[in-house]
Design a protein around this nucleic acid. Sequence first.
DNA 1: GCATAGTACATGCAAATGCATGTAAATGAG
DNA 2: CTCATTTACATGCATTTGCATGTACTATGC
Lengths: 145, 145
Amino acid sequence: MPMSIPTKSTVQAWARLVRAQHSAHFLVEKALKQNGFPPLTWYDVLLELERAGQAGLRPFELERELLLPQYGVSRLIEKIEKQGYLRRNKCLGDKRGQRLVITKAGEKLRQDMWQVYGPAIEQAIGQRLTSAQTKQLSELLAKLT
Amino acid sequence: MPMSIPTKSTVQAWARLVRAQHSAHFLVEKALKQNGFPPLTWYDVLLELERAGQAGLRPFELERELLLPQYGVSRLIEKIEKQGYLRRNKCLGDKRGQRLVITKAGEKLRQDMWQVYGPAIEQAIGQRLTSAQTKQLSELLAKLT
DNA sequence: GCATAGTACATGCAAATGCATGTAAATGAG
DNA sequence: CTCATTTACATGCATTTGCATGTACTATGC
C-alpha cells in the first residue's frame, strides 16, 4: 500500500505545529527556570502521583501518561525522590515493582509550580485565542493523537 | 500587571498541543531513522540552504529559521559539513562570518529524505484531517507563534 | 585615532539523553 | 515442577545538549 504525498496545506500545518509547540513550550520552561523551579516533566510526574493518591502509581503506569521512554522515567523518579518529592513504596504482589507516592513536599512543589506554570500557559495560548478558537484548536489537535 | 489563570479549555489545548506535536514528531523521526537518514534538523538546514542558492546563508541567519540555539547551529553545521553535504565559503565583508552553501550531495540527500519525510507528514497529519480541518488548524496554530 | 561595546561563531565541561543490555521477578507452555 | 519467555525496572557507555565563556572581528562614541 503506497503512502501518498502531503499537500501544501498539510506541510504548512506540520511546520506550524512544530513551531507553535516549540515556542509555547520554550516560554513555559523559561518561566519555570526563571523562578527556580524544576522542568515541566517534574510537574507532570507530581500531578499524576497526586491524582493517584495514596495508592500511588507504578513506574510503567507513569510511562504511559508521560511522554517519556522507560529509562527516562526510571531516572526522573530517581532524581525527584532524592529531592524528597516522592517516595517509593513496596509493591505488594509484584516484587519487581514499586509504588510511587507523592509526599507533602511534593504536593507543595506542584502547587507552587502551578503559580508560574498556569500563567505561562495562559500567556502562550489563552491570550492568543478566543474561547471558541481554543476549543476548536483543542478538537483538531485531539485528532492527531 | 497581574497575569491571569488559564481556563480548563486553555489547559486542555496546551496539553493536546504538546501531545500532538510529540506524537507527530516522533513518528517522523522514527521513519527517518528506520530508513537510515539523519534527523529532521539536517533536513531543515539543507532545505534552507537550497532555498538560499549559491549565495548561501550565514549561520546566524540559519539560527533564526531553525529552532536552534547558536551553539546548536554551530555544531550541527560542523557535522553536516564533515559528511560533505554543505561547504563553508569565505564571507566577503565580514571576516568573522562564513557563507554556508549546499553541495550536490546535500541536494540529493534532501530529496531522498523527502521520500520518507513527506509520507510521514501525510501519515501524521494529512490522513487524520480533512482539507478544511487542516487549513483551520494551520490558521489557529499560526496565532500561537 | 583609540577605547569600549556589540556581534559572529566556537568550544570546554557538566548534565541530560539514547541505546543497548543487565538483573530480577512473573508468566506460560509442556 | 521446569524451562523458556516476557515484564519491570536499572544502568554503563557513547552521544548530545545546555551553559558559560573564549576568540576574533565589527561598530560606535569620543
